[in-house]
């Protein structure tokens, strides 16, 4: 399997606080892995760095075996748009836009995309996530689970190689947690790599690899 993203001995220091103390990790095509650990162990920081939202203090990030220059903001934006889909604990949907428009936003970044085709694709994504008929609803007209599914659809809009999810079920009830988890497993079966941060051990157990972090280092991989 090809490596999508690789972290080589990365550290992250904020002020005097060493958040990551030398972490190396490879995420390959088809991976389904979870990162667990107590609060402050560096899980989210690791995900933000792997997702090119943050810059490591030292160490190197490679995307498709190419080292990333964190000064090249344009390229970072390009990679985030094309190769990574983010899902957060809070849905972060734009309240002024409909569900369909929210999903459409990442595709609009590429001006070569045909808008009509993109709309059809995004509507089909919403349909596949059980949101048929709710395309024109504003986020506040949807339930928490539906909002999170729209956020997942948005993460999938540009057909990325990897989905990075930071506590995606943290705000959901058990029924919606199950729905979201099933979606991730289904996406993984379709070939997408999934990196999920979670506090819930039961969910982590459903993934192929569990990375346990503690005090800025990877304590174990199982």
């Amino acid at each position: 399997m090809n490596t999508i993203i690789e972290a080589k001995d990365i550290t992250k220091t904020v002020g005097l606080n060493k958040i990551l103390k030398g972490v190396s990790l490879q995420i390959k095509q088809g991976d389904l892995l979870s990162i667990i650990g107590v609060s402050g162990s560096g899980k989210s920081t690791l995900m933000y760095i792997l997702g090119l939202l943050d810059e490591p203090t030292t160490g190197e990030i490679l995307v498709n075996d190419n080292p990333i220059n964190f000064k090249d903001k344009k390229y970072l934006s390009y990679i985030r748009n094309k190769k990574v889909g983010f899902v957060f604990q809070f849905h972060y949907l734009i309240s002024e836009l409909t569900a369909l428009e929210n999903v459409l936003i990442p595709t609009l970044k590429n001006i070569n995309n045909n808008k009509k085709e993109s709309e059809e694709k995004c509507a089909s994504l919403l349909d596949s996530l059980g949101l048929k008929g709710k395309e024109k609803r504003k986020p506040y007209e949807l339930s928490g689970g539906e909002q999170q599914r729209v956020a997942i659809a948005r993460a999938l809009a540009n057909d990325p190689e990897i989905i990075m999810a930071d506590e995606p079920t943290g705000n959901l009830d058990s029924k919606n947690t199950r729905i979201v988890m099933d979606i991730f497993i289904e996406l993984n079966l379709q070939g997408k790599a999934i990196l999920m941060i979670t506090h819930e051990n039961d969910l982590a157990k459903e993934t192929n690899r569990i990375i346990k972090m503690n005090d800025g280092i990877i304590e174990s991989i199982s």
Binding site: K73, N81, F86, Y92, I94
Partner: peptide, 12 residues
């Protein structure tokens, strides 16, 4: 929040 998500999904 919207600005953050726009940047996360690839807007410069």
């Amino acid at each position: 929040k919207d600005i953050a998500i726009l940047k996360a999904i690839g807007y410069e």
